[in-house]
Design a binder for these strands. Structure first.
Lengths: 148, 148
DNA sequence: CTTAGTGCAAAACCTTTGCAACTCT
DNA sequence: AGAGTTGCAAAGGTTTTGCACTAAG
C-alpha cells in the first residue's frame, strides 16, 4: 500500500480513497482473481459509492504501474491479481474446464526454454504465461472420471 | 474437410455451405489466427451472403468438435486456429507487446512439467497453453532496443 | 417432411469515453 | 488554484439470442 503511494507520487498521480479501496479489495482477497465487477460488488457491499467506470480506470492504471497483473481466463472478462514484485516468482494457473475454478501452481521451470525461444525468434521476451486446462478433483468425480 | 463432414455426421449436425466456407477460410489462411470478424470479411469479400451470427455459431461448434481451437491474445476478440489432430503437436505463441504480432513457436517441452503438476494438484490435465510476451525484432529497433 | 441451420435485428455483455462536478496536492 | 479524478450516462465493441424463414438429411 505504501508502494502504491510511492508509485502514484512518482508519476504525479493522486492517492484517492477510491484507489486505496480498490487495492485494499485485492489485499483482502489475495487468493482470488477479481474482475472489475467483483471489485464493484465488494466495495458496494461495504457501502462505498464508487462507480464502475472508476474501477475500470483504476484497474488499468494499477496494471500500468505493475501493482496488479491483468489476466484472461476465457470467461469473458479481465481478471487481476496482485503483482508480487519482491520476488520475480512466476506462478501459473490450472483452469477447470467444468466449473471454471482456477488453482495456482508455483514454480518456474521455463527460463531455459524462454532463453531458447528468445534466441531463435529474435524476440526480446519480457514475460510468459502458462495455463493448464483440465478437470479438478471434484469435477472428475461428478463426471464419473471418464476419459473425455 | 472430410474430417469435418465425419464429425458433423456423427452428431447429426448438417453440412451446410456456410460451414464449409468457414472452414475453407481457415484452410486458406492457415498462417493466421482469424477472429469472427476476419472470417466475415473474408467470406463477404468472396461475395458470400453469410451472416455474422452464423459465423459465431459455427466457430463455437467447430471448437466443440475440436476442428478449431479457440485462443485469446488479449486483443478483445476470440481468435481461432485449425486444430492439427494428426500429431498432438503443441505449438506456442510469442506475442509482441508493441505491434501485437503473433509468432508461432514449435516444440513441446512441457510433458514432464504437466505430469508433475497433474500429480500435485489432482487435476486431470488435458491441455496447456504457453504464451511468451516480448518485443519482436522490428519493434525492438523502433523502440531503440531500450530495456524497458 | 422433419429437424437443424440461417439471417436479421435486437439484446446482452463488458469496457471505454465525454463531461460537469469534485478533490487531492 | 490547478491538474488530475470521479460518477454518471451514453456510446463502443464483441458476442448471444429470438424468431420467422430456409434448407439439409
Amino acid at each position: 500500500m505504501a508502494e502504491l503511494q510511492a508509485k502514484l507520487h512518482e508519476r504525479r498521480y493522486k492517492l484517492t480513497p477510491q484507489r486505496i479501496q480498490i487495492l485494499q479489495a485485492f489485499l483482502d482477497n489475495h487468493t482470488q482473481h477479481l474482475c472489475a465487477e467483483d471489485v464493484y460488488g465488494i466495495l458496494r457491499s461495504k457501502s462505498s459509492e464508487i462507480g464502475l467506470a472508476t474501477i475500470y480506470r483504476t484497474l488499468e492504471l494499477l496494471s500500468e504501474l505493475e501493482v496488479l497483473h491483468k489476466m484472461d481466463f476465457g470467461d469473458g472478462c479481465s481478471r487481476y491479481e496482485i503483482n508480487e514484485t519482491s520476488v520475480p516468482h512466476h506462478h501459473h494457473h490450472l483452469i477447470c474446464l467444468e466449473c471454471g475454478k482456477v488453482k495456482e501452481f508455483e514454480g518456474d521451470l521455463l527460463e531455459t526454454l524462454e532463453a531458447m525461444v528468445a534466441e531463435k525468434s529474435n524476440f526480446r521476451i519480457v514475460d510468459h504465461q502458462l495455463k493448464f486446462y483440465g478437470y479438478c478433483q471434484e469435477c472428475q468425480k461428478d463426471r464419473g472420471d471418464r476419459s473425455e
